[in-house]
């Protein structure tokens, strides 16, 4: 009962935050609402007893990435962006298409909800699982973990190439 209560609280924070992020005119407001969304997701992770993910979510996304976002927003010329039209003329068509896809996905998930097999909830508190995450990353998922480092290197080199005036 309490579980469900918290789930709906976090879910509505995420949804509302997401909606406000894309509808606000001011970029700073959008960024603040995005922080609310990300915090809601951290809450959901905590709710699922994934405390490591929740911590990473808060430290990396809310703490790191969003601060960078706000810095960038402060550096660009906002007045001009705020005066431009926010949605193009076909927004209602996009809305219809998005609603249709959303309806299909909801229908599929609702009809097939019995298909997902999850281990039953453990009564009481689970043991901390940060160590399990670490073991999985460095043992079974060692290869994708290492390839991700190349991906990050590419992203870094790419950002420098794209942004620097003279190489």
């Amino acid at each position: 009962m309490l579980d469900q209560f918290f789930f709906y609280i976090f879910a509505s924070v995420i949804l509302l935050g997401g909606l406000l992020t894309i509808t606000r005119r001011s970029a700073v407001h959008s960024a603040i609402f995005l922080i609310a969304t990300l915090l809601g997701i951290a809450g959901l992770f905590l709710h699922l007893q994934a405390e490591f993910l929740a911590g990473v979510q808060v430290i990396l996304y809310v703490g790191g990435i969003m601060v960078l976002f706000l810095f960038v927003i402060m550096l660009v010329n906002l007045d001009q962006a705020a005066r431009q039209r926010q949605f193009n003329r076909q927004w209602w068509l996009a809305l219809l298409a998005a609603a249709a896809v959303c309806g299909e996905a909801l229908y599929g998930l609702y009809r097939g909800r019995g298909a997902f097999t999850f281990p039953g909830a453990v009564p009481g508190n689970m043991p901390p699982n940060t160590q399990a995450v670490g073991n999985a990353l460095y043992q079974n998922y060692m290869l994708p973990f290492e390839v991700a480092s190349i991906m990050l290197l590419v992203a870094m080199v790419g950002a420098v190439v794209m942004a620097k005036k003279r190489l």
Binding site: Y141, L143, P144, V147, A148, I150, M151, V154, A155, V157, G158, V161, M162
Partner: peptide, 21 residues
């Protein structure tokens, strides 16, 4: 070569990011 969904996805993104740049 990958036979794992995660490795495939990361391989794809590594390739795609380089080509975007």
């Amino acid at each position: 070569t990958a036979m794992d969904l995660i490795t495939l996805f990361i391989g794809l993104e590594t390739m795609a990011l380089s080509v975007y740049v």
